[in-house]
Design a protein around this nucleic acid. Structure first.
Lengths: 197, 197
DNA sequence: AATCAAAAATGACCGCGGTCAATTATAAAA
DNA sequence: TTTTATAATTGACCGCGGTCATTTTTGATT
């Protein structure tokens, strides 16, 4: 039986997250340095690693929170009526992840479909996204707006695949004037979900 | 106008690659340390970085070569007759990449579709794979074995997306007894290529 | 208030990738 | 052969993530 954490510990953790979030705000995710975090939090380096497994563990909390917020917005938009609307619902997520390779890498690393640790924020967010997509796809199938010959779970996972694909391509070029991920996604979703004629 | 490299330089580069390949053979890609390479090659650390941009640059050559070899085998198998056979052709590639996360990460990072530097081995391999897939898909379309409502290029890119997807999932769990990537790929390809009825 | 075991925090230390001003080898020109 | 420009190599040094034996703090118990 593991003991409940003491008050001090909770404060330290909160301080670390607060400082980290501030630094991300100022310098972006890729500008985050562990040494900066502990310095500004007035804490020893070892302390950070007793709260988070590693730097990714810290980032996972920050990014996981943001993903949750995005999912709230996505859900608030309501169920899409067709593939095009679905693409639109996914656009904020793509914009967010597309802003920094660090986000993409981290999400990719933690996004095992049936992952092991559901207590992790990122994993929870991932499961929630798949569940939401599956629900929407079911509705679209029932409405006859998309193909019905495949289970909604498979279609949902396929969408995940395309999301990561367009993001991967996005990060492979100096995206100065290129088509943003959200636009690149559309043809894939159309082809993937297209109702069988 | 850049000068031709001197003989000594070519020898050093070859030695570095030879040593690196040997270490990978013994310890796997994730066991490769720059300091080990330069020690065994009897060369200073700075030398390695004058030959390769960074550690990834070295790995890219090793991995790119292997990918090329796999493509040779893939091409030698001849054009597939249907989606199932296509899956089988891709299996060796999945097995190779699935063996070490380092390979996956590197390929993902360099796999921009229309990449900038075609002199890079990895990029060349990537372009070759897309070209080969596109050709095969064209044949399958002509034979009426797969859907014809989408351009073969889009279908080929979609396959890339699914390859990365199953690999990503694969690396997210302790793959002791799980279904290997090649098996996981099949339902996606079936659904993606299925001829419109 | 004194005691004490577990919890929390500390910071010197390590591994490893990557840099760069200084040094040495090479080959063409004088 | 001597000179000389530049190609190639060197290795001390740095940044940064991560570890762990040691020390300090906490809060329950007597």
């Amino acid at each position: 039986m593991t003991r409940a954490p003491q008050k001090r510990r909770l404060e330290t953790r909160a301080k670390l997250l607060e400082v980290a979030a501030a630094i991300v705000q100022e310098q972006g995710y890729s500008g985050l340095r562990v040494e900066d975090v502990v310095a500004r939090a007035r804490v020893a380096k070892g302390t950070l690693f007793s709260h988070f497994k590693d730097k990714d563990g810290l980032l996972a909390v920050l990014i996981g929170d943001e993903v949750m917020r995005l999912l709230d917005g996505m859900e608030a938009g309501g169920a899409p009526q067709d593939a095009a609307e679905l693409t639109a619902r996914l656009a904020p997520h793509l914009d967010y992840v597309g802003q920094d390779r660090v986000i993409f890498d981290l999400l990719l690393r933690y996004s095992g479909t049936t992952a092991a640790e559901p207590d992790e924020v990122v994993t929870a967010g991932f499961l929630r996204q798949v569940a939401l997509l599956t629900r929407w796809l079911q509705l679209l199938q029932a409405a006859g707006r998309i193909r019905r010959d495949q289970p909604p779970e498979l279609l949902a996972e396929g969408i995940q695949a395309f999301l990561n694909h367009v993001l991967g391509v996005w990060f492979c070029m100096e995206h100065d004037d290129e088509t943003p991920p959200a636009r690149a996604l559309e043809p894939y979703l159309q082809a993937w979900l297209q109702p069988a004629p």
